[in-house]
Design a protein around this nucleic acid. Sequence first.
RNA 1: CGGGGCGUAGCGCAGCCUGGUAGCGCACCACAAUGGGGUUGUGGGGGUCGGGAGUUCGAAUCUCCCCGCCCCGACCA
Length: 573
Amino acid sequence: MRASKFHLLTTREVPADAEIASHQLMLRAGMIRKLTAGIYTWTPLGWRVLRKVENIVREEMDRAGYLELLMPAVQPAELWRETGRWEDFGGQLLKIRDRAGRDYVFGPTHEEVITDLARNELRSYKQLPITFYQIQTKFRDEIRPRFGVMRAREFLMKDAYSFHIDSASLETTYWEMYEVYSRIFTRAGLSFRAVRADSGAIGGNASHEFHVLADSGEDQIAFSTGSDFAANLELAEAPMPSTPRPAATEQLRLVDTPAAHTIEELVTQFDVPVEKTIKTLIVAAAPGNDSPFVALLVRGDHSLNEFKAVKLGCVARPLRFATEDEIRAAIGAGPGSLGPVNLPVPCVADHSVCIMADFAGGANVENKHYFGINWDRDAALPACADLRNVIEGDDSPDGKGKISLARGIEVGHIFQLGTKYSKALNAVVLGEDGKSHVMPMGCYGIGVSRIVAAAIEQNHDDQGICWPEPLAPFQVAVLPMNARKSHRVREVAEKLYADLLAAGVEVFLDDRDIRPGVMFNDMELIGIPHRVVIGERGIDSGELEYRYRTDAENTTIPLATAAETIIGRLAPR
RNA sequence: CGGGGCGUAGCGCAGCCUGGUAGCGCACCACAAUGGGGUUGUGGGGGUCGGGAGUUCGAAUCUCCCCGCCCCGACCA
């Protein structure tokens, strides 16, 4: 490609609303342009990258024997009513109506459509297992789209669905898909981790998320430094305390604490170790409980894990914190003075709280705290459960190594669905036993457009994007210096360009009549991995300058064998 | 959805308080110089000031309504 025939849209300035590196760089490099909130045009440059990702995904899915198809983006409401998701899916579901007044959705996902296909087309266990996939534009009406294509409303997704005669077959395909996903992200040159994830209300089956590691990631993941344990923070179990509760050594003391309404204030004003304080959180109880509220206790330096709290059963789903008025009415003291002693509300404590002794907490009297609290003596030991988020340095739940926390960008999710959709839509086949079987299903997604942004988050510097070679829009940039005045430079550049093209290399020849500095900056911004500079000086000495995008310095390659030398340095495809 | 903020040239912004000829930088076009890290000079093109209504002799500026966009959003006791 010649720069003069391409459409480069690089800019020096960044639109004010771009917050993270990938969003800024995609705009500055001219890969995307916003049409409206959460909806983007992919420019020729951005599209080349998106297609690279798409092709890697497609090749690996095909290699695994999965069958590509293409389903409609617009789907009849009727199907969604059959599975109940017309109501249940929530505000992210974009509903549309045609001229006859019939309702449709713009597909945010395709379980309904694929299951409808399966119930019409699959008859026998002999046709199973089978896995279909598509790469297609989805629409989810996000409450708050942000970060460019990272959390867009319209986005490109690969979604796959597998059908099985039994759950053992589903499990086999699931783990196969796990390996396929790992290959895809490895091929794309990304640093990633598969983590155990929430399998949701659908059932206790396995689910894994694939996260690209990046500090700007929206998800927190916990992993072990000593094993391959990795889980979404909301799911990571805190280790059971291994030490017994120490004996009480202090007397219970009621202290005036008018200026201490947070753990931090308590710790600094009264010189008490934060591990000897507890937080008392009042949340709404599940319907049918004796009390309208439940108190949850976690250590002062820990935070409540809402996901675990809701799993208790006695807590309302979704989790709702009591308002200050509700707390005063139920307990007689406001937030900031709450604690387990004389607490008129049922109570559940985190495991780490249950082994505390001589600790501090609110007195349930305004502006007072108790110090030297001990279970049994001062308050009944409450029910104990895992309620907190794991923290850096916790023992790994599998007993091997310590927990470390990192941020990740979710780019893939694999899921053993079970029969939720096949049952609702009556997708059955005859088994070997001559009986009808509801097919267990798996579903497997990859955020294709999000991978582009995630790759940039992971691979950029002050100058711009540093593409992993398999994703780069072009592999090689050929930059002639002052070509207008030097026919030798022009000739060498044109020859190298032609040779590389002939060898099937994606090469970008910057034949614009611009200053070298502008050229260098543009090429670094858009992140082309290999760069060759052609100038009079080099031609005289029989050498060309070469630089890999992440190299600090130029090196030289012989002019006579330039094309072969560069080709030898390209990453294998 | 609730709270806050912003809409002025393709992008980034000033002007608004205190009403009176719509500006700056980048980008774009032309010419010239320059020619290895966003060079320089001269000249130019480009605006329903988000939309509508109102107040006024006069509205980007004041008032009201609408639209769009951005940010934040339990609690961390």
